[in-house]
Each structure stands twice: as C-alpha cells, then as structure tokens.
Amino acid sequence: MSEILVLVEHVDGEVKKVTLELLTLARSLGSPSAVWAGPGYTPEAKARLAEYGAEKIYVADAEEITGYVVAPKAELLAKLVGEAAPGAVLIAATPEGKEVAGRLAIKTDSGVITDAVGVGEGFVAEQSIFGGGVNVKSRVTKGTPIIAVRPNSTAPEPAPAAGAEVQVTVELSDAARGAKIVERVKQEKGARPELTEAAIVVAGGRGVGSAENFALIERLADSLGAAVGASRAATDAQWYPHQFQIGQTGKTVSPQLYIAVGISGAIQHRAGMQTAKTIMAINKDPEAPIFELADFGVVGDLFKVVPQLVDEIEKRK
C-alpha cells in the first residue's frame, strides 16, 4: 500500500481537527504518513497523530520552515514526494494550504485539485462548484495527485497506528526565503471552537445592528457550543473581527448546522456556507435569499426570536 502524505495543520503545538479528518480519509486510500512542518512538535502531538492512524510521522521542526511564507513547506513536501513516492498528498484546503498545494504541484510536475469534499478510489476527488450548484468528480492525470481537502469533509475516527518518527531536514533554497514573516499578530480567539472546524456555526449580519448586539449572537453560539461567524457587512462595520468573516473572501465553512441571523444571503456570503449540512435562517424579510437555502427559517425580528431560542435551548439542556 502506498504512502499517503498528510500535511499537519497545527497551532501552538496542537494538531488541528482537519488533520485528524485527513488522516482518517488517508487510511481509506493507503498508508497515512503525517508531515509535521515547523517548530512545536511534542510527544502529545505525536500521540495524537498516531491515534488517528499515522503509520509514519515525518518531522521537520526547524524554525525556518514556518519563518517564510509557504515556499518552505512546499520544498519539504517536494523532497518527501521525491523520496517516498507517495500515492497522493492531502493538504487542508485553507487559503494557505491551497497555496502550498499549488507550489508543490509545480515543483513535482503534478496536477492539483482544490477544495475536494471527498476522495475515493483511484484518488478521484469530489468537488462542489459554482456555489454548490454542480458536483464534479475529477482526478489528477500527471504526477502525484495533490489534493486540497475542505475541512469537515470526513468525520475523524481514531485507529491507532505505529506513528514511527522520521526526522527530516531540508536545505531551503534562496527563493524559499523570499518572503520573511517578521511578526505574527494574533487577534484574540476566546474559548469557542475554531470557525472552519466547528460542527455548528452561528453567524450574524447587518441585521444585528451593532458590535454590542453581537453579544446576542455569541449567547446563541455558546448555548449550542458553536463558533461565531459574521457577514462582510458586519465585519466591514467592525462589529466583529475580520477573521470571522464567512464567504467568498472570508472563511469557507461546511458545518453540520449553520444558523444565519440577520443575513440576507448574498451570493458572496453563500459561497462560504452553502455546503453546510443543515441551514437555519432568522430574518425579518420573507424575501431574503437566505430562505431559499434554509432547511428551517423564521421570518421575524431577531431581537425577539433569538433570546427566546436561547431560553428554549437552555431549558431543554
């Protein structure tokens, strides 16, 4: 069985859920090998990767791998593709993950598929395009299939494996050192689940009316253990930080449940949430396009509906 390389996503030493999803997916395609890039590798991280099926863990934890934009990760993966001749490389379809995939494709003269929502036999990838309007099956025909997979495409399941560690060093080219990261500015995140990984997302839009009123959205989110998102109208007005924007130019989410509150459902917004499994909308305008997508909608004033909904949820707990 050929190796399937999975690029590990991690923050502050913690393995992200999407990586566990990709390892789960990789098991159905071959023998999963996790690839750790950058500092922060710990015994806990190793245990987590092994728990979810990593037979091998390539560790390249030199500082410089994450000290420059994207290119070093692509060089690391290209080296491993050359040495291990894997069946495929799976990368999370985040904006950065896709950039890594793109550079890797060129380095290895391989095809790349982005935003896969599933990968099956023969590395046939499923994509949902045009805002969910068309389903496509595509495959790489030259080189090593490089597939960027959307978070929440597979349910992560543990399946303990060896997790044999292989230390890797890469000699970065000068070109890979072209864009140096001089400072990382972290905006507060809080205790809620991460937006792209959350099973439930509650998002607020212009209808929420102010930054203070977003407390209502947060209350609903917390009652469900959900992440909070926002439309561009809300982030542009600085009611909520930009990293929580959902849509064409924000995050793409595909949670189990998406609740849109005071969001009209513009095409650019829909592009970021249309693949949610269940969609609920609360909006006072019965003509709002978001209702076209909604599995359940309430036409009404969010300032009346949401507090009542939160009370009901608390009661039922």
Binding site: I279, M280, I282, P286, F291, L293, A294, D295, F296, G297, V298, V299, G300, D301, K304, V305, V306, P307, Q308, L309, V310, D311, E312, I313, R316
Partner: peptide, 16 residues
C-alpha cells in the same frame, strides 16, 4: 424546500 415559519411570538420555540 425548507420549512419557513412566521414569528407570532413563538418563533424561537419553533426554531428550538
């Protein structure tokens, strides 16, 4: 097609 209800004082309950 989803179920769309109009809030008549019980919209939150129906959503729940």
């Amino acid at each position: 097609a989803g179920t769309i209800v109009t809030d008549e004082g019980d919209g939150g309950v129906k959503a729940a």
